[in-house]
């Protein structure tokens, strides 16, 4: 079989396809999903395949959207509640980082610390998330502390174990090289193991942060005396007032916010680890955008290195 004249194969094994095709393929899925949504919710009343109470139609959802976007009360405001949820995740996750990364580095370097922490990690990683909501509720009530501690406990064991394995995955050759160059044990930890492991740690943090952002709603739903807000709270309100549109809007909002956060984290990762993501960064639109924005405010002295691709 000969290659198409424009130089790519539709099903080339592990080869790239042109950007326009990639975008079109993605768009196809969006359109197909929307069509399915429209088809199952078309008509009125009992004629619909899925009733309004099961799944509101596209038109109904769009019609309701301003109620959330322009809500007078912050409790019902979509952006406000998203930021409330995000703040809790950032606090809980930040706390988990402060505890998990230093401990993980220590445990990755020294088997004795690893053995001491092993039981905690085993429990932490396997704690049923539903049971954890009950536990933090019992321990900390329904305030902000409960929500932050929920994210902290849910994440810290994963951060710990991922940091440990990233440190352990750094090739022994690097350690041996440093040893024959006269490095002490402490120097090997901070000049070799930690810098070489950090990109891997950061990768798993990106995944975990996305998960944490999905988890936070579990504790926001338990709301005895209103007022605390968050996307989970909004979801609960949707159920109480029988407004299924809110549920659909939140379901559509979460992935977009999660994707935005992931792009921001990826850009941070590229800037932190230029030595590893040189080429990958150049292919990322988000990274190029960040560089353009940055160059408006700050011009490095040696800006002759690389022009945007």
């Amino acid at each position: 079989m000969s290659e198409p004249s424009n130089g790519f194969r539709l099903f080339g094994l592990r080869t790239e396809i042109p950007r326009w095709l990639s975008a079109t393929a993605g768009l196809f899925t969006v359109v197909a999903s929307a069509a399915l949504w429209w088809w199952t919710t078309r008509g009125v009343g009992e004629e619909r395949i899925l009733l309004y109470s099961q799944l509101p139609s596209i038109a109904e959802t769009i019609e309701y959207f301003p109620n959330l976007w322009e809500a007078d009360s912050p409790e019902r405001h979509l952006l406000h509640n998203t930021l409330v949820s995000l703040k809790r995740v950032i606090l809980g996750f930040g706390l988990a980082l402060l505890v998990g990364i230093p401990l993980g580095v220590a445990a990755g370097c020294f088997a004795i610390i690893r053995s001491i922490l092993a039981p905690l990690i085993l429990f932490g990683r396997n704690i049923p998330i539903a049971a954890l909501t009950a536990l933090v509720f019992a321990l900390f009530g329904t305030g902000e502390l409960e929500k932050v501690m929920f994210i902290f406990i849910a994440c810290v064991a994963f951060i710990l174990s991922d940091t440990i394995s990233s440190i352990q995955d750094v090739g022994e050759r690097y350690v041996e090289t440093a040893l024959t160059l006269g490095a002490t044990r402490l120097q090997i930890v901070f000049k070799v193991l930690v810098p070489l492991a950090m990109p891997m740690v950061f990768n798993s943090l990106r995944v975990l942060f996305g998960l944490a952002f999905g988890y936070i709603m579990l504790v926001e739903i338990i709301q005895e005396s209103g007022g605390a807000g968050g996307l989970g709270y909004l979801l609960n309100m949707a159920r109480r007032r029988s407004r299924p549109e809110i549920m659909v809007i939140i379901i559509l909002t979460i992935p977009i916010v999660a994707w935005l956060i992931d792009q921001v984290l990826f850009v941070v990762q590229c800037w932190l680890f230029r030595w590893k993501y040189g080429r990958e960064a150049e292919n990322s639109g988000a990274f190029r955008l960040s560089r353009s924005i940055l160059s408006l405010f700050w011009r490095p002295a040696n800006s002759n290195s690389k022009a945007p691709a």
Binding site: T177, T180, G182, W275
Partner: peptide, 17 residues
Amino acid sequence: PGADRGMVFQDYTSFDN
């Protein structure tokens, strides 16, 4: 190990960072 006995390996062991 010590710096009085330097070693060069077959694998490339430059510190990537």
